[in-house]
Nucleic acid binder design. Structure first.
Lengths: 157, 157
DNA sequence: TATTGTTATACTCTATAACTATA
DNA sequence: TATAGTTATAGAGTATAACAATA
Protein backbone atom coordinates (compact mmCIF):
# COMPACT_ATOMS: atom_id res chain seq x y z
CA UNK A 1 0.00 0.00 0.00
CA UNK A 2 1.25 3.46 -0.89
CA UNK A 3 2.17 6.06 1.73
CA UNK A 4 -0.33 8.62 2.89
CA UNK A 5 1.07 11.56 1.06
CA UNK A 6 1.49 9.69 -2.18
CA UNK A 7 -2.00 8.33 -1.85
CA UNK A 8 -3.36 11.80 -1.38
CA UNK A 9 -1.54 13.03 -4.46
CA UNK A 10 -2.95 10.13 -6.38
CA UNK A 11 -6.49 10.92 -5.29
CA UNK A 12 -6.17 14.56 -6.26
CA UNK A 13 -4.68 13.64 -9.61
CA UNK A 14 -7.56 11.32 -10.43
CA UNK A 15 -10.17 13.83 -9.26
CA UNK A 16 -8.63 16.60 -11.34
CA UNK A 17 -7.98 14.64 -14.48
CA UNK A 18 -10.91 12.33 -14.95
CA UNK A 19 -13.70 14.90 -15.39
CA UNK A 20 -12.12 16.72 -18.34
CA UNK A 21 -11.29 13.46 -20.07
CA UNK A 22 -14.85 12.36 -19.50
CA UNK A 23 -16.11 15.55 -21.01
CA UNK A 24 -14.00 14.97 -24.07
CA UNK A 25 -15.45 11.50 -24.49
CA UNK A 26 -19.00 12.78 -24.04
CA UNK A 27 -18.61 15.55 -26.54
CA UNK A 28 -17.05 13.36 -29.18
CA UNK A 29 -19.67 10.74 -28.67
CA UNK A 30 -22.32 13.31 -29.35
CA UNK A 31 -20.54 14.54 -32.42
CA UNK A 32 -20.08 11.14 -33.97
CA UNK A 33 -23.33 9.45 -33.04
CA UNK A 34 -25.69 10.63 -35.79
CA UNK A 35 -28.06 10.42 -34.03
CA UNK A 36 -25.94 11.40 -31.08
CA UNK A 37 -25.20 8.80 -28.46
CA UNK A 38 -24.78 9.65 -24.81
CA UNK A 39 -21.99 7.92 -22.95
CA UNK A 40 -24.38 5.63 -21.04
CA UNK A 41 -26.05 4.71 -24.32
CA UNK A 42 -22.70 3.97 -25.87
CA UNK A 43 -21.65 1.87 -22.93
CA UNK A 44 -24.92 -0.03 -23.06
CA UNK A 45 -24.49 -0.82 -26.74
CA UNK A 46 -20.90 -1.88 -26.14
CA UNK A 47 -22.00 -4.11 -23.31
CA UNK A 48 -24.74 -5.70 -25.39
CA UNK A 49 -22.34 -6.37 -28.22
CA UNK A 50 -20.19 -8.37 -25.83
CA UNK A 51 -23.08 -9.85 -23.85
CA UNK A 52 -25.91 -10.45 -26.28
CA UNK A 53 -29.03 -11.59 -24.49
CA UNK A 54 -28.14 -9.73 -21.32
CA UNK A 55 -30.92 -8.72 -18.95
CA UNK A 56 -31.90 -5.27 -17.84
CA UNK A 57 -30.37 -5.98 -14.45
CA UNK A 58 -27.13 -6.82 -16.20
CA UNK A 59 -27.14 -3.46 -17.93
CA UNK A 60 -27.91 -1.68 -14.67
CA UNK A 61 -25.08 -3.40 -12.88
CA UNK A 62 -22.63 -2.83 -15.71
CA UNK A 63 -23.42 0.87 -15.79
CA UNK A 64 -23.68 1.17 -12.03
CA UNK A 65 -27.14 2.71 -12.12
CA UNK A 66 -30.50 1.72 -10.70
CA UNK A 67 -32.78 -0.54 -12.65
CA UNK A 68 -35.19 2.32 -13.05
CA UNK A 69 -32.51 4.30 -14.83
CA UNK A 70 -31.45 1.38 -16.95
CA UNK A 71 -35.05 0.73 -17.88
CA UNK A 72 -35.51 4.22 -19.25
CA UNK A 73 -32.16 4.13 -20.98
CA UNK A 74 -32.98 0.86 -22.72
CA UNK A 75 -36.40 2.20 -23.56
CA UNK A 76 -34.86 4.97 -25.59
CA UNK A 77 -32.52 2.63 -27.36
CA UNK A 78 -35.44 0.37 -28.24
CA UNK A 79 -37.49 3.32 -29.45
CA UNK A 80 -34.59 4.38 -31.63
CA UNK A 81 -34.37 0.92 -33.11
CA UNK A 82 -30.90 0.24 -31.74
CA UNK A 83 -31.77 -2.49 -29.25
CA UNK A 84 -34.20 -5.38 -29.32
CA UNK A 85 -36.01 -6.35 -26.12
CA UNK A 86 -38.02 -9.54 -25.78
CA UNK A 87 -39.23 -11.41 -22.69
CA UNK A 88 -37.18 -14.50 -21.89
CA UNK A 89 -38.91 -17.71 -22.96
CA UNK A 90 -38.44 -19.63 -19.72
CA UNK A 91 -38.64 -16.85 -17.18
CA UNK A 92 -41.03 -14.34 -18.50
CA UNK A 93 -40.25 -11.52 -16.12
CA UNK A 94 -36.71 -11.35 -17.53
CA UNK A 95 -35.85 -9.25 -20.59
CA UNK A 96 -33.51 -10.51 -23.24
CA UNK A 97 -31.64 -7.58 -24.78
CA UNK A 98 -29.57 -7.52 -27.94
CA UNK A 99 -28.34 -5.12 -30.58
CA UNK A 100 -30.27 -4.66 -33.76
CA UNK A 101 -28.39 -4.32 -37.04
CA UNK A 102 -28.83 -0.56 -36.85
CA UNK A 103 -27.56 -0.60 -33.29
CA UNK A 104 -24.46 -2.51 -34.25
CA UNK A 105 -23.78 -0.15 -37.16
CA UNK A 106 -24.29 3.00 -35.14
CA UNK A 107 -22.13 1.65 -32.33
CA UNK A 108 -19.35 0.93 -34.75
CA UNK A 109 -19.58 4.35 -36.33
CA UNK A 110 -19.61 6.17 -33.00
CA UNK A 111 -16.80 4.05 -31.66
CA UNK A 112 -14.63 4.66 -34.69
CA UNK A 113 -15.22 8.37 -34.81
CA UNK A 114 -14.62 8.88 -31.13
CA UNK A 115 -11.57 6.64 -31.07
CA UNK A 116 -10.10 8.46 -34.03
CA UNK A 117 -10.48 11.80 -32.28
CA UNK A 118 -9.03 10.50 -29.07
CA UNK A 119 -6.19 8.88 -30.94
CA UNK A 120 -5.34 12.30 -32.36
CA UNK A 121 -5.02 13.58 -28.84
CA UNK A 122 -3.15 10.61 -27.43
CA UNK A 123 -0.82 10.56 -30.40
CA UNK A 124 1.17 13.21 -28.56
CA UNK A 125 2.32 10.52 -26.15
CA UNK A 126 5.57 8.65 -26.61
CA UNK A 127 5.59 4.87 -26.56
CA UNK A 128 6.68 4.84 -22.95
CA UNK A 129 4.05 7.33 -21.98
CA UNK A 130 1.29 5.42 -23.73
CA UNK A 131 2.37 2.33 -21.88
CA UNK A 132 2.22 4.20 -18.59
CA UNK A 133 -1.31 5.32 -19.35
CA UNK A 134 -2.40 1.81 -20.29
CA UNK A 135 -0.89 0.42 -17.13
CA UNK A 136 -2.62 3.07 -15.03
CA UNK A 137 -5.98 2.39 -16.67
CA UNK A 138 -5.62 -1.30 -15.85
CA UNK A 139 -4.83 -0.45 -12.26
CA UNK A 140 -7.83 1.84 -11.97
CA UNK A 141 -10.02 -0.78 -13.59
CA UNK A 142 -8.87 -3.27 -11.01
CA UNK A 143 -9.41 -1.13 -7.95
CA UNK A 144 -12.64 0.50 -9.06
CA UNK A 145 -14.11 -2.75 -10.21
CA UNK A 146 -16.52 -3.72 -7.49
CA UNK A 147 -15.80 -0.52 -5.63
CA UNK A 148 -19.44 0.40 -5.46
CA UNK A 149 -19.58 4.15 -5.23
CA UNK A 150 -22.94 3.33 -6.64
CA UNK A 151 -26.56 4.22 -6.11
CA UNK A 152 -28.31 3.78 -2.82
CA UNK A 153 -28.89 0.28 -1.56
CA UNK A 154 -32.63 0.77 -1.70
CA UNK A 155 -35.16 -1.96 -2.40
CA UNK A 156 -34.96 -1.61 -6.13
CA UNK A 157 -31.34 -1.81 -7.08
CA UNK B 1 4.79 9.11 -30.84
CA UNK B 2 3.55 5.64 -29.95
CA UNK B 3 2.90 2.96 -32.56
CA UNK B 4 -0.52 2.49 -34.05
CA UNK B 5 -1.43 -0.62 -32.17
CA UNK B 6 -0.25 0.68 -28.84
CA UNK B 7 -2.09 3.92 -29.45
CA UNK B 8 -5.25 2.01 -30.14
CA UNK B 9 -4.90 -0.01 -26.98
CA UNK B 10 -4.36 3.22 -25.08
CA UNK B 11 -7.51 4.75 -26.54
CA UNK B 12 -9.62 1.74 -25.66
CA UNK B 13 -8.20 1.62 -22.16
CA UNK B 14 -9.09 5.26 -21.55
CA UNK B 15 -12.57 4.88 -23.03
CA UNK B 16 -13.29 1.81 -20.92
CA UNK B 17 -11.85 3.04 -17.66
CA UNK B 18 -12.76 6.68 -17.38
CA UNK B 19 -16.57 6.40 -17.28
CA UNK B 20 -16.73 4.07 -14.27
CA UNK B 21 -14.23 6.18 -12.35
CA UNK B 22 -16.26 9.23 -13.23
CA UNK B 23 -19.38 7.56 -11.94
CA UNK B 24 -17.65 6.82 -8.68
CA UNK B 25 -16.67 10.43 -8.29
CA UNK B 26 -20.16 11.63 -9.10
CA UNK B 27 -21.81 9.28 -6.65
CA UNK B 28 -19.47 10.15 -3.82
CA UNK B 29 -19.86 13.81 -4.50
CA UNK B 30 -23.60 13.42 -4.12
CA UNK B 31 -23.20 11.47 -0.94
CA UNK B 32 -20.88 13.93 0.72
CA UNK B 33 -22.25 17.25 -0.44
CA UNK B 34 -25.06 17.85 2.04
CA UNK B 35 -26.66 19.39 0.12
CA UNK B 36 -25.34 17.24 -2.69
CA UNK B 37 -22.92 18.77 -5.15
CA UNK B 38 -22.79 17.69 -8.75
CA UNK B 39 -19.37 17.27 -10.31
CA UNK B 40 -19.68 20.47 -12.37
CA UNK B 41 -20.72 22.34 -9.25
CA UNK B 42 -17.78 20.94 -7.36
CA UNK B 43 -15.40 21.86 -10.15
CA UNK B 44 -16.84 25.34 -10.29
CA UNK B 45 -16.35 25.86 -6.58
CA UNK B 46 -12.82 24.49 -6.81
CA UNK B 47 -12.08 26.82 -9.70
CA UNK B 48 -13.45 29.82 -7.85
CA UNK B 49 -11.40 29.00 -4.80
CA UNK B 50 -8.28 29.18 -6.94
CA UNK B 51 -9.49 32.03 -9.12
CA UNK B 52 -11.55 34.35 -6.96
CA UNK B 53 -13.17 37.08 -9.00
CA UNK B 54 -13.33 34.94 -12.14
CA UNK B 55 -15.92 35.73 -14.78
CA UNK B 56 -18.69 33.53 -16.05
CA UNK B 57 -16.76 33.04 -19.25
CA UNK B 58 -13.86 31.82 -17.18
CA UNK B 59 -16.04 29.22 -15.54
CA UNK B 60 -17.45 28.14 -18.89
CA UNK B 61 -14.02 27.73 -20.36
CA UNK B 62 -12.68 25.90 -17.34
CA UNK B 63 -15.55 23.43 -17.41
CA UNK B 64 -15.65 23.22 -21.18
CA UNK B 65 -19.31 24.13 -21.43
CA UNK B 66 -21.23 26.88 -23.16
CA UNK B 67 -21.81 30.13 -21.38
CA UNK B 68 -25.50 29.33 -21.28
CA UNK B 69 -24.76 26.23 -19.31
CA UNK B 70 -22.30 27.97 -17.04
CA UNK B 71 -24.84 30.71 -16.43
CA UNK B 72 -27.44 28.25 -15.20
CA UNK B 73 -24.88 26.38 -13.14
CA UNK B 74 -23.69 29.53 -11.43
CA UNK B 75 -27.29 30.59 -10.96
CA UNK B 76 -27.94 27.52 -8.84
CA UNK B 77 -24.82 28.03 -6.81
CA UNK B 78 -25.83 31.63 -6.16
CA UNK B 79 -29.36 30.57 -5.20
CA UNK B 80 -27.90 28.06 -2.78
CA UNK B 81 -25.75 30.74 -1.24
CA UNK B 82 -22.47 29.12 -2.25
CA UNK B 83 -21.29 31.71 -4.74
CA UNK B 84 -21.45 35.48 -4.84
CA UNK B 85 -22.01 37.22 -8.17
CA UNK B 86 -21.61 40.95 -8.63
CA UNK B 87 -21.16 43.05 -11.77
CA UNK B 88 -17.60 44.23 -12.32
CA UNK B 89 -17.10 47.84 -11.34
CA UNK B 90 -15.25 48.97 -14.46
CA UNK B 91 -16.82 46.75 -17.09
CA UNK B 92 -20.39 46.28 -16.07
CA UNK B 93 -21.27 43.46 -18.43
CA UNK B 94 -18.74 41.25 -16.68
CA UNK B 95 -19.61 39.20 -13.60
CA UNK B 96 -17.23 38.87 -10.69
CA UNK B 97 -17.68 35.49 -9.06
CA UNK B 98 -16.37 34.30 -5.75
CA UNK B 99 -17.08 31.77 -3.03
CA UNK B 100 -19.17 32.70 -0.04
CA UNK B 101 -18.18 31.41 3.38
CA UNK B 102 -20.81 28.70 3.09
CA UNK B 103 -19.47 27.80 -0.36
CA UNK B 104 -15.95 27.45 0.93
CA UNK B 105 -17.09 25.31 3.83
CA UNK B 106 -19.25 23.04 1.71
CA UNK B 107 -16.48 22.68 -0.84
CA UNK B 108 -14.07 21.62 1.83
CA UNK B 109 -16.50 19.13 3.32
CA UNK B 110 -17.35 17.58 -0.04
CA UNK B 111 -13.73 17.45 -1.05
CA UNK B 112 -12.68 15.76 2.13
CA UNK B 113 -15.45 13.21 2.12
CA UNK B 114 -14.98 12.29 -1.51
CA UNK B 115 -11.21 12.16 -1.22
CA UNK B 116 -11.46 9.92 1.79
CA UNK B 117 -13.68 7.46 -0.04
CA UNK B 118 -11.47 7.47 -3.08
CA UNK B 119 -8.42 7.04 -0.91
CA UNK B 120 -10.00 3.89 0.49
CA UNK B 121 -10.24 2.53 -3.01
CA UNK B 122 -6.81 3.66 -4.15
CA UNK B 123 -5.23 2.35 -0.97
CA UNK B 124 -5.18 -1.02 -2.70
CA UNK B 125 -2.38 0.29 -4.92
CA UNK B 126 1.27 -0.26 -4.11
CA UNK B 127 3.64 2.69 -4.04
CA UNK B 128 4.85 1.91 -7.54
CA UNK B 129 1.33 1.56 -8.82
CA UNK B 130 0.21 4.82 -7.26
CA UNK B 131 3.15 6.50 -8.91
CA UNK B 132 2.17 5.03 -12.24
CA UNK B 133 -1.35 6.38 -11.85
CA UNK B 134 -0.10 9.83 -10.91
CA UNK B 135 2.23 9.87 -13.88
CA UNK B 136 -0.57 8.80 -16.21
CA UNK B 137 -2.91 11.47 -14.87
CA UNK B 138 -0.27 14.11 -15.53
CA UNK B 139 0.16 12.85 -19.06
CA UNK B 140 -3.57 12.89 -19.70
CA UNK B 141 -3.80 16.36 -18.22
CA UNK B 142 -1.12 17.53 -20.57
CA UNK B 143 -2.58 16.09 -23.75
CA UNK B 144 -6.21 16.86 -23.01
CA UNK B 145 -5.45 20.34 -21.89
CA UNK B 146 -6.48 22.49 -24.78
CA UNK B 147 -7.75 19.49 -26.70
CA UNK B 148 -11.15 21.01 -27.15
CA UNK B 149 -13.54 18.11 -27.57
CA UNK B 150 -15.85 20.86 -26.50
CA UNK B 151 -19.20 22.33 -27.43
CA UNK B 152 -19.99 23.60 -30.88
CA UNK B 153 -18.24 26.69 -32.10
CA UNK B 154 -21.52 28.54 -32.28
CA UNK B 155 -21.99 32.29 -31.82
CA UNK B 156 -22.31 32.02 -28.09
CA UNK B 157 -19.40 30.07 -26.81
C1' DT C 1 -19.94 45.32 -34.44
C1' DA C 2 -18.03 42.35 -30.90
C1' DT C 3 -18.33 40.63 -26.24
C1' DT C 4 -20.65 39.17 -21.87
C1' DG C 5 -24.16 37.19 -20.06
C1' DT C 6 -29.17 35.60 -19.85
C1' DT C 7 -33.45 33.26 -21.16
C1' DA C 8 -36.16 29.77 -23.72
C1' DT C 9 -36.51 25.18 -25.20
C1' DA C 10 -35.53 20.53 -25.49
C1' DC C 11 -33.26 16.46 -24.40
C1' DT C 12 -30.58 13.06 -21.41
C1' DC C 13 -29.04 11.23 -16.93
C1' DT C 14 -30.02 9.93 -12.34
C1' DA C 15 -32.15 9.10 -7.94
C1' DT C 16 -36.06 7.67 -4.93
C1' DA C 17 -40.45 5.72 -4.36
C1' DA C 18 -44.27 3.08 -5.57
C1' DC C 19 -45.97 -0.16 -8.50
C1' DT C 20 -46.87 -4.70 -11.62
C1' DA C 21 -45.84 -9.24 -12.95
C1' DT C 22 -43.54 -13.37 -12.41
C1' DA C 23 -41.38 -17.04 -9.56
C1' DT D 1 -41.87 -13.31 -0.09
C1' DA D 2 -38.34 -12.28 -3.36
C1' DT D 3 -36.97 -10.88 -7.93
C1' DA D 4 -37.28 -8.43 -12.67
C1' DG D 5 -38.84 -4.70 -14.55
C1' DT D 6 -41.79 -0.39 -15.10
C1' DT D 7 -43.74 4.13 -14.14
C1' DA D 8 -43.99 8.58 -11.70
C1' DT D 9 -41.66 12.42 -10.10
C1' DA D 10 -38.03 15.55 -9.44
C1' DG D 11 -33.78 17.84 -10.27
C1' DA D 12 -29.30 18.48 -12.68
C1' DG D 13 -26.42 18.85 -16.93
C1' DT D 14 -25.98 20.22 -21.67
C1' DA D 15 -26.78 21.98 -26.34
C1' DT D 16 -28.71 25.37 -29.60
C1' DA D 17 -30.91 29.53 -30.57
C1' DA D 18 -32.42 34.01 -29.68
C1' DC D 19 -31.92 37.86 -26.94
C1' DA D 20 -30.23 42.05 -23.83
C1' DA D 21 -26.72 44.94 -22.19
C1' DT D 22 -22.30 46.79 -22.46
C1' DA D 23 -18.06 48.20 -24.85
Amino acid sequence: MAGDELLHKCVEAVMDTVPPVMRFIRTEMRRHGCPALSVPQFRTLTYLRRQPGASLSGVAEHLGVTRAGASILVDRLVQNGLVQRVPAAEERRRSVLSLTGAGARLLEAARKGTCRRMAEVLAALSTDEAETVIKAMRLLDAVFHGAPGNPGGGPNR
